[in-house]
Nucleic acid binder design. Sequence first.
DNA 1: CAAGTGCCTTTATC
DNA 2: AGATAAAGGCACT
Length: 310
Amino acid sequence: MPKIGRVNKKRLVFKKLKIQMKTRLNSSYPFNLDVTLCCGQTFRWDKRGEWWYGIVGQKAFKTRQISDGLEFENIDTDFVKDYFGLNYNLSKIYSKISKDEYIKRAVDAFYGLRILRQNPWECLISYICATYKNIKAIRQTLLNLAKKFGDKIRFDGYDFYTFPTAEKLAKAKVEELVDCGLGYRAKYVAETAKMVCKCGFKFESLRRLAYEKAREELLNFPGVGLKVADCVLLFSLGKFEAFPVDVWIKRVILRYYAKHFSDNFIQKISNKQSLSNAEYEKMNLFGRKYFGKYAGYAQEYLYHYERTKS
DNA sequence: CAAGTGCCTTTATC
DNA sequence: AGATAAAGGCACT
């Protein structure tokens, strides 16, 4: 094939992808782009002017919400619907999780927040890096990681960096990872990346497993405890019954749901900062039983509400 | 501005 | 089993 022909073909494809598209949002399927990207479930989005810029896979794209429509460029409609969870009937989910006045208030406050379907590999590494860090620091760490080990791509006049592959991170030196701001988590990331490469781990296979089984699998990775596993299951593998319990959810439980536990238990967990696995499981199980199969949705609303209230 | 506290916790050890 | 400590470093007060 002559070289000229190939170049022309590439250019044609590129042009086609750049075409701006719009998805009309149905009113029974509420959506709020800003809240969805700001609530702390994802760390690599940036708002520049009207547009949100994101990187997924090897591509950067941008999107914005205009009343009843979601506009996007450099990405296809099917991906957008899948990634932003637009195919789920959010109103129905609300009716299932709205068990009391408090959760109703949280839902009202962030009406249209959707759980994303992120890439499981990126999600796993992100949450290993996120342990015991604040969100700003998590963002910075993940940017450092992408700058050092990802590919630079250019879109719309800006530079972006793809999320590093498992192969790339498996080859990284622990010191290089430390330099990205990972601290003691560096060895967990290095080990996890090696394990994923070595056994050719297929994250998508976890989708077919029941929540408990899928969680057990994730717990095999170093740096992954119950909380991280629950986050990965919820934010990337469609396990909406997962109910991650972090310090904020613990506070919510102490303040608003204490009556669902024994006085003894409440006393115990309010007097110390970290949770044992047994204590975690108790609160996790409460969340799943009380809110039902979309407990993870309830969790995200409660989490964001508690964090932003003050 | 210094110093203290807290962060979407996990792991190691006793 | 259950308690306790240690582990980057940044952000916020």
